[in-house]
Amino acid sequence: MKIVLMGYMGSGKSYYAQLLAKELGFKYLDLDIEIEKKAGKSISAIFSSRGEIFFRKLENQLLDELLKTQDNFVLALGGGTPCYGNNLELIVNTPNLKSIYLKRDLSYLLYILWEEKNKRPMIAHLNKIEDLEDFIRKHLFERQYYYRQAHFSLNPTKDANETLNAIRQLLH
């Protein structure tokens, strides 16, 4: 079985993918980490040197490769992954795959991303919290169509164990 977590940046995809993979005894994968390994440089460096189009092509190639493996895994996607190219189609059409949209509200995302903005190339240039809020609002509006095509949708709670229990219930 393959489990794919999708959602906006800062929604907890990597965090919950790690916890879930450990609990299930599955391999944990983070698509951004796999891209960095393949490219031999950070996501920020890829964006700076080659641009977003190159990044999205590499992202699509690696997603396709991972989904074709026979491995059991929990995969954390990048926030934009399901929204580009045929990535959503690859996810939807992969047998034995369950996708979960981790849905966070704007206030949570704004709080988390303001603290982490310098580590995230898509928002590092934003210097006012109001600009970040507008950026997130716009992206959430544009990306909802893709995120909502996940098999399941879940609003994580403050309690990680409670959220993991909810994910387990969705998968059974």
Rank of each mutant, 00 (worst) to 15 (best):
L19G: 04
L20M: 03
K22C: 00
K22A: 11
L24C: 01
L24G: 05
L24T: 02
L24W: 12
G25Y: 06
K27D: 03
K27G: 04
Y28M: 00
L29D: 03
D30Q: 02
D30M: 05
L31Q: 02
D32N: 12
D32L: 14
I33D: 05
E34C: 12
E34Y: 11
E34L: 14
I35E: 05
E36D: 04
K37T: 04
S44K: 13
S44F: 07
I46Y: 04
F47N: 02
S48M: 12
R50M: 09
G51N: 05
E52K: 10
E52I: 14
I53A: 15
I53L: 13
F54I: 11
F55C: 08
R56Q: 07
K57A: 01
K57D: 02
N60F: 14
N60W: 06
N60Q: 11
Q61W: 02
Q61N: 07
Q61Y: 13
L62A: 00
L63R: 05
D64M: 10
D64F: 15
D64R: 13
D64H: 15
D64I: 10
E65I: 15
L67P: 00
L67M: 11
T69F: 07
Q70H: 06
Q70K: 15
D71A: 15
F73V: 01
F73L: 05
F73R: 01
V74N: 06
V74C: 07
V74E: 00
L77H: 07
G78F: 07
G80S: 11
T81E: 07
T81C: 03
T81Y: 06
T81G: 07
P82S: 10
P82R: 13
C83L: 08
C83G: 05
C83T: 13
C83R: 10
Y84K: 13
Y84P: 00
Y84M: 12
G85Y: 15
G85L: 13
G85D: 10
N87L: 01
L88H: 08
E89R: 08
E89G: 00
L90A: 04
I91H: 12
I91C: 05
V92C: 03
N93A: 00
P95V: 13
P95H: 11
N96M: 08
N96T: 12
N96L: 15
L97W: 03
K98V: 00
K98S: 15
S99T: 10
S99L: 01
S99W: 06
L102G: 10
L102W: 13
K103D: 15
K103R: 15
R104M: 10
R104Q: 15
D105T: 01
L106T: 09
L106W: 09
L106A: 05
S107I: 07
S107Q: 14
Y108I: 08
Y111I: 04
Y111M: 15
I112Y: 03
I112D: 02
I112F: 04
L113S: 09
L113C: 11
W114F: 09
W114G: 09
E115F: 09
E116V: 10
E116I: 14
N118E: 14
R120A: 10
R120T: 06
P121E: 12
M122K: 10
I123Y: 12
I123E: 05
H125T: 02
L126K: 11
L126T: 01
N127E: 11
K128L: 14
I129T: 08
E130M: 01
D131R: 08
D131L: 11
L132P: 05
F135H: 07
F135I: 04
H139T: 00
H139F: 03
L140Q: 14
